[in-house]
């Protein structure tokens, strides 16, 4: 007769499953509704992002440890080679910078403007990627900089080779970046060769963009460089976005089907940089810290 619920230590039944499900489902639906409407739930998300930060750091630590070990065990000769290559590159860039200063002056004189239009972003802040999510639905990075570092929503993010994306959900110490290849992202671009402006949409495939709004007869070919056009005031002008990888002209459609490859190496970069517009620029972020100096 000892086979009763109490003697077998079965926890009490409590609320019936159906009621409990109803409560949770209602709760989920109201959370969703509130989240869609914006508003106060952003604050909750902000706090949860702060809670999630240590776990994200812990999850990123194996990759970080691996990078650290690899760096430490790199051969002397490899380092010397790299050093030599970097020095050469630096010399090259110095020459380019000199030439650029000259061009800027020329440009200034030609346009007789107060400032050269291309030079709208001057401050930047490096951030380390601590979590990566790349699938067909979402192409996101999480980096270890947030509001305490002066990051704000919609801030442009670049890597060494080109544009990466923009800040989306900013937490206190971390920020979720939406990448260019995210299917919900669009960036206003300009074809560097012809000056034609259009939008480049993310596809959800790693490092691939599509340009669906170009007419059949538009002058675009494989290898054309796409740069940011600066329209929309989120991204500064003239940063490389990608290069055209395929142009398909199909008589059945009035538009050309163009795909492009993103310049920034998205699956390899572990460090990205946030950009600040010059304070005089209309799109300058009000929260820019006074001294976000390059490290």
């Amino acid at each position: 007769m000892s086979n009763t619920a109490a003697s077998r230590n079965i926890p009490p039944r409590g609320t019936p499953a159906g009621l409990r499900f109803f409560v949770y489902a209602t709760l989920s639906l109201s959370i969703m509704w509130l989240d869609q409407r914006g508003g106060w739930l952003d604050t909750v998300r902000f706090a949860l992002q702060a809670v999630a930060y240590p776990l994200q750091m812990a999850l990123a630590s194996p990759a970080a440890a691996w990078d650290w070990t690899r760096e430490n065990f790199e051969q002397r000769t490899t380092l010397q080679q790299e050093n030599r290559a970097l020095r050469e590159r630096l010399r090259e860039l110095e020459l380019l910078a000199m030439r650029r200063a000259d061009l800027e002056r020329e440009n200034f004189e030609l346009r007789s403007l107060g400032s050269a239009a291309t030079d709208v972003a001057d401050r930047w802040l490096a951030a380390r990627v601590i979590a990566v999510e790349t699938n067909r639905l979402r192409q996101r990075y999480t980096v270890d900089r947030g509001t305490v570092h002066g990051i704000s929503k919609g801030q442009a993010v670049i890597a060494g080779e080109g544009l990466v994306g923009q800040g989306l959900r900013v937490g206190p110490w971390s920020t979720e970046i939406i990448l260019l290849a995210d299917p919900e992202h669009a960036v206003p671009v300009q074809i560097a060769r012809t000056g034609q402006r259009t939008l480049a949409l993310g596809t959800g495939r790693n490092g691939e963009l599509s340009l669906p709004y170009l007419p059949l007869q538009s002058d675009i070919r494989e290898g054309d460089l796409l740069v940011t056009s600066g329209l929309g005031k989120t991204f500064p002008t003239g940063y490389p976005v990608g290069s055209v990888s395929a142009v398909r002209r199909d008589g059945a459609s009035p538009l050309a089907q163009v795909t492009a490859k993103i310049t920034a190496k998205l699956d390899r970069d572990r460090v990205v940089a946030f950009l600040w517009f010059k304070p005089a620029h209309p799109a300058a972020s009000p929260t820019a810290p006074p001294a976000a100096t390059p490290p």
């Binding site: 989920s28 909750v44 992002q49």
Partner: peptide, 23 residues
């Protein structure tokens, strides 16, 4: 928190799954 497009999305899906499994 980690990967929802809308907050509450997975919460609803997993509550439903747990409910059916419990029943």
């Amino acid at each position: 928190v980690y990967r929802g497009a809308v907050f509450g999305q997975h919460a609803l899906a997993l509550s439903l799954v747990a409910y059916i499994a419990v029943r």
